[in-house]
């Protein structure tokens, strides 16, 4: 029950954080839709692990669900990370490049 209450509070939190900015009032529905989309799709993506190991997927899904519930306004956090600032863009580009090369090179070294 406490978790449910927290969920409701966080939705109210999104609403109030958006309505502070008078310009985005009509976009509360959009923010909520984005919130649910991110939540559901990340859980579904975690379920994808079942092709590797069922137990791992159960653990990851439960962990992910709890983590997402407790950090609820995910959409606004993700939005602020995807602004048009060049620094953020280059940061994510470099991180992706590093991860790709590291994972693929050392991952396939022992195939």
């Amino acid at each position: 029950m406490a978790l449910y209450q927290k969920f409701l509070d966080s939705i109210k939190g999104i609403k109030s954080s958006l309505s502070k900015d008078p310009t985005t009032m009509d976009n509360v529905s959009g923010a909520l839709a984005a919130e649910f989309l991110i939540f559901v799709s990340l859980i579904l993506a975690a379920l994808f692990l079942r092709h590797v190991s069922v137990i791992a997927s159960v653990v990851v899904v439960i962990l992910a669900a709890v983590l997402f519930f407790t950090n609820m306004p995910l959409a606004s956090k993700i939005k602020s990370e995807q602004s048009d600032s060049l620094e953020k863009m280059t940061f994510y580009v470099m991180v992706t490049l590093g991860i790709l090369i590291a994972v693929i090179y050392w991952g396939l070294k022992y195939v």
Binding site: S83, D84, S85, L86, E87, K88
Partner: peptide
């Protein structure tokens, strides 16, 4: 300065 031209607020 890139951060002034293409920073977050821009």
């Amino acid at each position: 300065s890139v951060s002034e031209m293409m920073g977050d607020e821009k």
